[in-house]
Nucleic acid binder design. Sequence first.
RNA 1: GCACAGGUGGGUGAGUGGUUAAAGCCAACAGACUGUAAAUCUGUCCCUCCUAGCGAGGUACGAAGGUUCGAAUCCUUCCCUGUGCA
Length: 399
Amino acid sequence: MPEPYFAVEKVSGSARLGRLRTPHAEIETPVFMPVGTVASVKGVPQEIVEELGAQIILGNTYHLYLRPGVETVRKMGGLHGFMSWRRAILTDSGGFQVFSLNDLRKVNEEGVTFRSHLDGSSHFFSPESAMEAQIGLGADIIMAFDECTEFPADRERVRLSMEMTARWAARSKKYFEEHKHKVPWRQWSVASGQWPVSESPSVSPPKDSGLTGHRPLTTDHCLTQSLFGIVQGGMDRELRRESALRTVEIGFPGYAIGGLSVGEPRELTREIVESTLEHLPKDKPRYLMGVGTPQEIAEYANLGVDMMDCVLPTRAARHGLLFTSEGKVSIKQARYAQDAGPLDPNCSCRVCGRYSRAYLRHLYASNEVLAQVLNTIHNLSFYLETMRRVRAGIAGASA
RNA sequence: GCACAGGUGGGUGAGUGGUUAAAGCCAACAGACUGUAAAUCUGUCCCUCCUAGCGAGGUACGAAGGUUCGAAUCCUUCCCUGUGCA
């Protein structure tokens, strides 16, 4: 089994350039991962998400478990087959929902009882069941089941929460190691090195994307899922350190920093990220969960974060907030009603290359679905381009 | 011409004597959004003034009069709209 699948290729200050090998794709880091919670990067078809250069996207265990159900996805060849995404996928465990579905959940040592936001039905998630679900969904990288601690929280609460997350991490790993062979694509990917055709007739075989940096599945890729651990510890440096040590002691091929961007001041986020990174192994990928603005992702990448995801570009786009080289543009504003210029003159995306601000504003005002599509394409393009620049910057820096 | 039904703030539409400058929705304008309960949420939305507030004036429910301490609400006349009958 090709276990050493993350390679740091260059270090420049605290920043690193790396290569992360997953069953479905090799990823250049630092990387931004668009969020596609329900197996959809809202508003944008897979082929365009590919074209924009996304190397890996996120799915969410809780949402997909509720609908369409893990078994359905599993039968369709896992998320890759189901949504016809040929590159890498990472699923969040549902730990974030322990935080965000505050009113709809109950936590105890064993796990979390959720009331479905769809129909109110009751469901139980434990580290074990979250792993079972994530194995069934078949993402390349899956996450330990954690509790994303709320902010603010007193120190004792943060400590207890962090300690439970650590125990859950051990349980997650144990279950994963015992069951990871059940991943829906393993058998055929090992055997044939390609996508299942007979098992899943509705899924077309992959065509080469033609994009540089993307390598189709080959047999020298890592062929099993990877489980990442998550560091918690709130806004307390000492608890963060302890959480990192405990998580590293359990041992994972990658480590995430969770529990940030939950309402705390930005400076505090940066401070905690910086101090937590010190306690994470340098030879493993480090994933900062749920962050941030374009400036922030560049900043964190330069601090040594290898992976980031955030709903901001996609959600903000749907709400009319667009990120540009000059900051941000609220495209719904009246001032753009007759603005014939491109959204961002310095952006090379297909939206900026073709449409005017006046048109984008009109689409938004008219509540056209196309507004969401174009806005999301631009924002994702901007984020992904931001990370390409960061990588180029690290690559070009004199060591 | 006659008979019904109506005319409310940018639109729609509640409100039929007193916490009504007038609900709600829409539009408009502004803001928020960071491991997605999010095509969502919040605020403003008659005018003027200020010590900026459950503040002070003014104007306002087709028009003009009237009843009343008090009227978008009741009465009279007129104007207009819709439907039906001529």
